[in-house]
Amino acid sequence: MDSQSRTLKMILIAGYAFLYIPLLVIVIFSFNEARLITSWTGFSLKWYRELFSDTVMLRATLTSFQIATIAATIAVILGTLAAVTLVRFPHFRGRTLFIGLAAAPLVMPDIITGLSLLLLFVGLHHLTGWPESRDAVTVTIAHTTLAISYVTAVVQARLVEFDRSLEEAALDLGASPLKVFFSITLPLIAPAIVTGWLFAFALSLDDVVIASFVAGPGATTLPMVIFSSLRFGISPEINALTTILILFLSLSMVIATIIMRKTQRPAS
């Protein structure tokens, strides 16, 4: 038993090493002076300086953050509505189709989602003249569609587990259904909504395939810029960018977890 559990622990450590060492290497070498990653030639911040003077990269970062913020916000609203529909309305016409539609984007490969949405935009343009050109708006729509499913799944899980008698009690005491939703239901599912928003934001900030299909020349997102530079090989500038992104994402992740722990404890 002892040797077995030791072996298991070794595998666990190896697994974590596998997950973290590649990222750690990038972070370390982002401070390397040399262009090549084979050898360490000295500490330098020159790749960070280069990154911050790269206007293409900076503009793409701004575009990506705008798209991610708007897409995540719309997705959270629509996803919450979808989750409420699925959990609280057990019978309505077309429910089966709705369940399918809400879950399907989760299993659809990105390349198909991207292709099909592009065909929709081209077809719509052909028929109605909208969208005039493909730009940040089309990317935002695509990312929202993808993210709705994730938000729905997260909020749905939370709605299922919480005590419904709270809502019923408020209603008996004379609160209107809307008031019940905003003062009872919404605060109780708030942690799930925050998680869903962060998830949607990260999804949007992460996507290269769908954006490549639906973004016109008007909007180049950060992952698209990174992807096209990666096709030409390794670039130390990307190391610097990676370090900043890792710092930003893990920090917000840790903050979100702390918030969730704090809000969840009294409820459970």
Binding site: L19, P22, V25, T38, L205, T242, I246, M253
Partner: peptide
């Protein structure tokens, strides 16, 4: 949480990490 954390860093960057490790001028070969 430690399993999920890398998932929150960009997908492209995780692929890129292996490019830097495996490339002919990368760390493993070095």
């Amino acid at each position: 949480l430690l399993v999920i954390l890398p998932f929150w860093t960009s997908f492209l960057i995780r692929v890129y990490a292996w490019m830097t490790l495996l490339s002919p001028t990368g760390i493993i070969n070095g």
